[in-house]
Amino acid sequence: MTNAHDGAASRARAALVTGGARGIGREVAARLQQAGWRVAIADIALPSADELAEDPRLATMFAVRMDVSDSESVRQAVDSVVAEFHGLDGLVNAAGYNRHEPVAESQDSTWSELFEVHLGGTLRCCRSAFPALRDSQRGVVVNFSSVAGRRGRPNRGPYSAAKAGIEALTRTTAIEWAPHRIRVNAVVPGWINTRLVQANLAAGRSDLSSLLHAIPMARLGEPDEVAKVVAFLMSDESSYMTGQSLVVDGGALINGNW
């Protein structure tokens, strides 16, 4: 007798990484591909020819435009990935961005856009991927939270609230999907040396010396150091983990130096 699991087990595992064109998402996609996954990247702006020339790894992945704040865009993009790979076994929800505003001056649009991208985007991608992940019988999801969801910093109200919500959503989804053999976990990056963090430092929205003072390891993390943890959560090495959030922050959250 054959079932969906037999079909899924006989092909290489396939993963979709949202926000996979740049930053940490790109490193996650590359790391998963290195680990033997067939990888699709989804992003609102796919790599240009110049970016492809700069990082040839991107040209080896199926790439699809996706606006995670738009349910139809997510549905169509996920469907195209499932059709391309004849199934889907893994989902990494890494799409996101930030906008800095103090709470007292916050715009409704900032609140709604950040929530739609981070929390709503995670929900939409999980929802659209669920049938394929269930059919896989070895489905796995990794969501992206942030230390900002656990630790207060000024001007990050909507971002912090949305990231905290992602950890709550991760736990709920993990419980609902465990009977379908889908594991759902989250990664909680600290300050990572991405283009966005560099832009914040350059614009004076963050101060490097005070950041380093708060990080016991006294350095920013590298995108690949987060990608390695995501790859672990996506792998069978974490086969008895679900509903968990793994912090990758050089010790910032456990630091008593305040």
Partner: peptide, 9 residues
Amino acid sequence: REAVVFARP
């Protein structure tokens, strides 16, 4: 403005 909609290896 260029917008890549999908790309296959």
